[in-house]
Design a protein around this nucleic acid. Sequence first.
DNA 1: AAGCCTCTGTGTAACGTTCTACACAACAGG
DNA 2: CCTGTTGTGTAGAACGTTACACAGAGGCTT
Lengths: 352, 352
Amino acid sequence: MRSSPARRATIQDVAQSAGVSVSAVSKVLRDAYGVSPEMRAKVTTAIEKLGYRPHAGARGMRGRSFTVGVVLTEMSSPFQPEVVDGINDQLESSPFQAIMTVGGANAERQQRSIEALVDRQVDGLILIAPFVRQPWLEKLAASIPTVVVARHGGGSSYDSVVDDDYEGARLVVDHLAGLGHQRIMHISHPSGGLKRPFVLSQTARCEGYVQAMNRLGLDADVIETTYSEQGGYQATVEALGRSVPPTAIFAGADIAALGALRAAEELGRQVPDDLTVVGYDNIYVTTIGRISLTTVDQSGQLTGTTSARLLLERIEGRSQPVHYVVAPRLIARSTSAPPAVHSGGRGGKRKR
Amino acid sequence: MRSSPARRATIQDVAQSAGVSVSAVSKVLRDAYGVSPEMRAKVTTAIEKLGYRPHAGARGMRGRSFTVGVVLTEMSSPFQPEVVDGINDQLESSPFQAIMTVGGANAERQQRSIEALVDRQVDGLILIAPFVRQPWLEKLAASIPTVVVARHGGGSSYDSVVDDDYEGARLVVDHLAGLGHQRIMHISHPSGGLKRPFVLSQTARCEGYVQAMNRLGLDADVIETTYSEQGGYQATVEALGRSVPPTAIFAGADIAALGALRAAEELGRQVPDDLTVVGYDNIYVTTIGRISLTTVDQSGQLTGTTSARLLLERIEGRSQPVHYVVAPRLIARSTSAPPAVHSGGRGGKRKR
DNA sequence: AAGCCTCTGTGTAACGTTCTACACAACAGG
DNA sequence: CCTGTTGTGTAGAACGTTACACAGAGGCTT
């Protein structure tokens, strides 16, 4: 008459099987001070034999749960999964395990996701592009080690890893201006209610664009829609319908650039001959032949490994904040080229 | 001299603040029998006031953790995130919270991810396209409520939700044959060591293709590479290099179809005039103008909500297995057309 | 030889919940 | 007035782990 069909082995069972005390087993498990080699051997054998695995919930009640929580904003964006891969790679060699939740688009749902993770007693948190309010974030980070990804402005109680979106935008503008473009339109995305300096990528890219344009003495021209195929499409249709349309479109995200490409195609503009289109993110599809989009790469992988490393340091006790900036890289492909020739001085636009 | 800066409120604190016993609070929390309306009111007020949130780890030690674990194989595939969205939607109205881990490509890492979740005392498990071995899976599912997504062959101790990949492949073959194609090549992906009938989508699609071809009296022609842009590219280069090349390529996944498109372009074949290409999955990029791939849709959202529903039923106690099949749907876009004219016999094809 | 370390191992009190068993009150039926 | 019954609340033992406090056993100094 055994109890349940397949009860899980506990630390008790291991202790009994090895003929030692529970505390001794715990010591071995925790790699604590004061275990003889024989002790360790006996215990590990017993663990092996019983297929014992420590119960994270019980662990979390006293010490650590060896779990870190990752909150994503959206999985469909290709950048975030890349970051997650980086995190997992970095954690592989540590005793920590990452668990994720999807926060979703609004601050409230995001907050709920974060709290759910905290309820589950994670030892640390990595938040990707969160738009919860700053005071809430600071308070959260004061109570649990936290690393924030893709949100500018630093913060005093958490670490952060951000792409230098200002610089990325500058790279694009300089590239386009270098090709001879003057009327460069930028497609942006709502700021999510965050105010300077605690802004997400979209806002930083937009500001970087404006600054770079001003420095070159060019007029900034921003259309705010959303970072989506639809958004890019609409913004492009609107811009090309003007009496003096832009010669280049800089979309703040590749996905919007794809919409811009579709709009251009439908309106009979050849890319890059009649119109230059540039994106941002270097998502996978931009590389494939039919698209071959000029874009900016921010290494999601590197961002992920870095943030995991910072989080582990923080869990180990570091408390002064570290803010890490990842340098972006322009990847010129085949959707950018010099603008169409003007007949003479200023004149007409030629289209096919 | 308070203890720590911001200690988390416990059930004790709530009990004290409400002037009742801990057990009473627990009863309210669990909606258990034997609480008077006044009691409930007092307790909920106290909970509100203290901002109390139950500690999932501690809960898990006796009762439920109200957490379900989701294991993905890869996040870069667009199908899996869609499933996750569906799961989250369904769980929104329940007290359960989903946490995810990324299993990765090999069975061993996947197994580790699953175990990590079990260690964290999840109440149930949803596994997306797992290729752990069948006996292991059955044993796991015997000890914890489990739903398996995208793996054929049923199973006696778990529920499953699968796309009818056989039918999907048949839809494609019939579509192509209906257009007049005879030499239809299929790009497949390694089976991951699983044997019939417990196969993953790729194998089912391949088998469905072979059966459909045979039924029409056509010769099956399969190249096994991987479901990746590279894989699709290589297979296509190989096939088009033959003395009698296929007139249509049916890639088992959209991502491979994109590679096929690139290969066709580089080899100077016009799609769909010189070559038809069809994918599977209806991933986002297939919809955009420059690509507009003919493909098969399997609703990831529906798959997700269904599997979450099944899991909740199972957690509530159902034990006989349910196997749910989702019907696929062909989406004809602009990469499929009748084959190029044979000199003589067949009617001419002219497009655009 | 006494005293004092150091090294290993054990006992046991938490940790925050759940849930069974029970106490008590109020009330109904005989 | 006694005996149930029903409804409401509480005590307290788990659950599986950690980590503090301490007990012995030797070995080194004086």
